[in-house]
Design a protein around this nucleic acid. Structure first.
Lengths: 342, 342
DNA sequence: CTGAAAGCGCTTACAG
DNA sequence: CTGAAAGCGCTTACAG
């Protein structure tokens, strides 16, 4: 009764039914008599049989697989992936497996052109795109995906004229909350560290929120308090030094990502400033590091779990032909020590 | 000249050759005349054609996919995955894609029984297993995999009687290096935080290294300086408090993982101790957090990149029927501030 | 409720 | 160098 690599045909033979009936029984078809179904399933279990995914996929033209594409600007072989996306990955695979989908992962560089292949080759039924990329490059890729009728969900801002569906965080609101909080604690000279370029729309939106909060409080944004910084190692440090060298007074920093914020805190401390007494700092993302640095970083949290669930449900909806809407999630301020509120 | 979902047959028709020739041309077979080959490939490009993986896989009985199984003891929905494995994930996908393999990821709990399915269903040609699990449960799963003739590589210690191939770090040497370093700095009363149970062989091996270093230095290990701790949030804190409550003198801690070490540092600080002046601390793993905490954590680094490359080459070797050997990598001490050497 | 048959899109011996 | 043909293991209309 041992078969090496059992097929539905082997089971059919043992069960004394047709191969078609085996196929139906294994998929719990109501067309099969309960008794037959159970007998077939019992035999399948005994033989350690599993449906050949290639054969099933070829027949149904599906893969029951989602491809997760992680983009990262960081160049080089040693590139560390943004921890925020890495956490999302965990939740995405859980959500996907809950819906019966496998997750294929890929760390393509943005410049690679393999995105279309996943669906075209029947390796995946749809894609989830994760990563802060340069918007221009990104946009082009997305248009190509849309032209090829690829199904995809984007983690990122909703942008006019951009095809596809996305889930994002209300970054304007996040920047507003962070800045408003600092203002509420009496800080008046709040510096902004990060990018305001339209090439990174989500970061630019956080800046918009920062401006909004200041203007609402009757304060005029001061460009001397605005320092460009990318969200990679060392950038925040450099940006903070730049800020210090400008000889402009400031009592707080809103950094557009935690990575920048944490780096900046080091630079401030290395230059004799105390956080939050001299300078209050607020970040964005709530990466796991944020709660562990000293002082613990006040930041704006995006609900990763909710985002992952949304992306997975979205892509499965697209695959199954249901209507899917782009949505925006509410960010939440996590107050810790670095802002001086505790 | 636009075809919706082109097949090799469509290309054959356009090129005026047989479908078999198209298949050969696309795989760069030397059997096809160069001229023909290029014409076929040109048409394929124009049509945005990609080989249907299901069909090819069904025919060749391969998937060109590796399944990466991440185990985590942590219970519950919010379970964060060990950052060490998450980093490994990145390197594994890069190495795999370099060899033409896709990576399917799964975060099954150890208790689930789906491991065999990956290969049996032709979804993956082999598995890579990642995770510190309870050894007994783990061992049983591995035996089941071996019985099912599944190809797999394990990240973990090489254990007698255990089937399969593995890549691991020389944990005894790592524990020895860490302890020896503390001894070299004049610390004599070194506490050990972690598990010594044979259910976690790699952690037990680190303890063996700790003992070895002490004995080599003519010191007798003191069981009162040994505190059990798992490597999950809060455990190190608890363990350090336990240690303090024992009223035993100690001037250093070797923690079996960075997660425990960092937690323990918090507990010590909260109780008025200064690190490294009062207590020196050394961890293990070199997670990214380690370099960012204050004081920065001295730790033992396992070369993640090398491990990932080894695992991928190993599994591909097994898939392609080449001889594969289990190997052990050398760990390296990374000296930072927490041990008092700087 | 069940079976015989077609066909998904490839790869690869076999024949020329 | 090329083609005709078989067959990988399923799913699913079609017929009964």
């Amino acid at each position: 009764m041992k078969v090496d690599n059992p097929t539905s045909r082997d089971i059919a033979e043992i069960a004394g039914v047709s191969q078609a009936t085996v196929s139906r029984a294994l998929r719990n078809s109501p067309l099969v008599r309960k008794e037959t179904r159970e007998r077939v399933q019992q035999i399948a279990r005994e033989l350690n049989y599993f449906v050949n995914r290639n054969a099933a996929g070829l027949r149904t033209q599906q893969s029951n697989t989602i491809a997760l594409l992680l983009f990262d600007e960081t160049e080089g072989e040693d590139a560390q992936i943004n921890p925020f996306f890495l956490s999302m990955l965990g939740y995405i695979t859980r959500a996907a497996s809950g819906l019966g989908y496998d997750v294929l992962i890929s760390m393509q560089q943005l410049t690679d052109d393999w995105h279309i292949e996943y669906q075209a080759s029947n390796r995946a039924d749809g894609l989830i795109l994760l990563g802060y990329g340069d918007y221009l490059t990104y946009h082009e890729k997305i248009e190509a995906l849309a032209r090829a009728n690829t199904r995809f969900m984007i983690w990122g801002p909703i942008i006019d004229n951009q095809p596809g569906h996305s889930i994002s965080c209300d970054n304007v609101d996040g920047g507003d909350q962070a800045t408003r909080h600092l203002l509420g604690l009496g800080r008046q000279r709040i510096a902004f560290l990060g990018s305001t370029s339209q090439r990174s729309p989500e970061l630019a939106a956080r800046y918009d929120g920062y401006r909004k909060a200041l203007l609402d409080a009757g304060l005029e944004p001061d460009d001397r308090l605005k320092v460009d910084a990318m969200s990679s190692e060392g950038e925040g440090y450099r940006a903070a030094l730049d800020l210090l060298s400008r000889d402009v007074e400031f009592d707080a920093i809103f950094a557009v990502t935690d990575v920048i914020a944490i780096d900046a805190m080091r630079a401030l401390e290395d230059n004799g400033y105390t956080i939050p007494d001299d300078i209050a700092v607020v970040g964005f993302d709530d990466i796991s590091l944020a709660g562990h640095v000293t002082p613990a970083l006040t930041t704006v949290r995006q609900d990763i779990r909710q985002a992952a669930d949304g992306l997975v449900h979205g892509i499965v909806g697209l695959i199954e032909g249901e209507p899917v809407e782009s949505t925006q999630m509410a960010p939440r301020l996590i107050v810790r020590a670095s802002c001086g509120a505790l």
